[in-house]
């Protein structure tokens, strides 16, 4: 009897986690900092599942793992509340609405595919998405390029991407190695070691998580 009561309580909790993130899912438009604020409102203020201080841990973990900030934050909150099952419930909750929306969009588009106006509209959207990508690059550049090494890495990586067929896995592996080597050499020689820009304005801080889109 007691076992089933405990199980019931646990499934109820998982259901709650799932529902909370199901609600957040559709509002994860564009990801980034706005996303964190939405999660904070739902999890800290409304449901009181976590403290505001834990949100900083969330941003730190979500930024260290690969993937979008929305899914990573959901996994963090879900794991804290209900282990691996909780994390799965949260990720399922945040992913389902976007999966449904993008499929619905694509069905709608397929339906009107032969309409030249729809084709033209999508061409406009394509230009807008390109602008969003370039803006994300610019925002991330502002918070992560600040000395010769970081500018050098970006220039070298971009040249490799544009001019060769090298797989980006090698760049993702190589960048950290260069970063580690540069930092340890500097430390060994007793030079000043900076791994982040020295001055961060309030605006930059607000923009910082924007790159985990």
């Amino acid at each position: 009897m007691q076992v089933s009561a405990a199980l019931k309580k646990k499934t109820h909790r998982l259901g709650q986690i799932f529902m909370a993130f199901l609600k957040i899912g559709p509002s994860t438009f564009g990801g980034g900092y706005a996303m964190i604020a939405t999660i904070e409102r739902e999890i800290v203020e409304r449901r009181k599942w976590m403290e505001t201080e834990e949100m900083a841990d969330m941003v730190s973990v979500a930024g260290s793992a690969p993937g979008g900030v929305a899914v990573n934050s959901a996994a963090f909150v879900g794991y804290r509340l209900g282990g691996l099952a909780g994390a799965s419930a949260a990720v399922l909750g945040i992913t389902l609405p976007t999966l449904a929306i993008v499929l619905a969009l694509s069905f709608t588009f397929a339906w009107f595919r032969d309409n030249p106006k729809v084709e033209a509209a999508l061409q406009g959207v394509h230009a807008a998405i390109t602008a969003l990508i370039l803006l994300a690059a610019w925002k991330m550049a502002r918070t992560s390029l600040f000395d010769a090494v970081t500018f050098g890495i970006t220039a070298a990586a971009l040249a490799i991407l544009l001019l060769t067929q090298v797989h980006s896995l090698w760049l993702i592996a190589g960048g950290p190695l260069v970063g580690l080597a540069a930092s340890f050499i500097r430390r060994k020689r007793g030079w000043e070691v900076r791994t982040e820009p020295s001055h961060r304005t309030e605006e930059d801080r607000a923009m910082l998580p924007e790159y985990y889109i």
Partner: peptide, 16 residues
């Protein structure tokens, strides 16, 4: 920190 210091510029290049 040092690893992310080197990784972030790569991500910038990938997004550009």
């Amino acid at each position: 920190k040092a690893a992310f210091y080197g990784l972030r510029p790569v991500v910038v290049a990938l997004i550009v």
